[in-house]
Simulated assay, not measured.
Amino acid sequence: MRTANADDVDGITDLHTLARTAYYQAGGLSDVQLASLDALSSRRQGWMRAVQSDDRTVLCAEREGELVGILAMGPPCEADLDAASVGRLYQIHVRPGLWGQGIGSHLHAAFVQFLRNTSLATGVLEAWERNSRAQAFYARHGWQPDGHHRPGPGNASYVRRRLGRR
């Protein structure tokens, strides 16, 4: 695992696109809803901002020189959360076809280490409610829904989860 840089952004964007397409399709969204050059460009710009940000960290998991997973983390973006005690897991993505091989758990462990290293008591994240794979993954790692939701695609919400004390 290593810290991402600007040279990684295209690969990160491609991996993110593959992963999100897989879970949104599994949740019932059509290819038409997922395929958009504007959305791809927006994802790439978002990853470039994250990689170049002073307050976010993006990590790349590699296996034999191939990008197999990504993690983005940093301060919370929600107004109701205190950045002095809460860290945000923005995204974990693992290359489809490699799910269930422990890559996501290694990325998750890096986030937990980030919380320890920065003396943050709580982690938060959002996961699309129809992404049953992510919901189960986070539940296995001790994350609990905290009651906050926001609208997401396909008339399904993003569910906020917490790790640690409330």
Rank of each mutant, 00 (worst) to 15 (best):
R2V: 02
R2S: 07
R2M: 10
T3E: 14
A4Q: 02
D7P: 05
D7N: 11
D8F: 05
V9C: 10
D10Y: 11
G11C: 03
T17L: 10
T17W: 08
T17A: 14
L18D: 05
A19I: 00
Y24E: 05
Y24M: 13
G27A: 08
S30E: 03
V32F: 01
S36G: 10
L37E: 15
L40N: 11
L40E: 14
R43M: 11
Q45V: 11
M48N: 13
M48T: 13
R49H: 13
V51Q: 01
S53M: 03
S53V: 07
D54Y: 06
D55E: 10
T57G: 08
T57H: 14
V58G: 04
V58D: 01
C60G: 04
E62M: 07
L67G: 00
L67Y: 01
I70Y: 08
A72P: 02
M73I: 03
P75Y: 02
P75T: 03
D80L: 09
L81Q: 14
A84Y: 00
Y90W: 13
P96V: 00
Q101L: 09
G102E: 05
I103A: 00
S105Y: 05
H106A: 15
V112A: 14
Q113P: 06
L115T: 05
R116P: 02
N117E: 15
S119I: 01
S119E: 13
A121C: 08
T122F: 02
V124I: 14
L125W: 06
L125E: 09
W128L: 10
E129A: 13
E129V: 12
S132K: 09
A134Y: 02
Q135P: 04
A136S: 04
F137R: 00
Y138D: 09
G142S: 07
Q144K: 15
D146W: 01
H148Y: 15
P151H: 04
P153H: 10
N155L: 11
N155F: 04
A156N: 05
S157R: 13
Y158T: 10
V159M: 11
V159P: 01
R161C: 08
R166C: 12
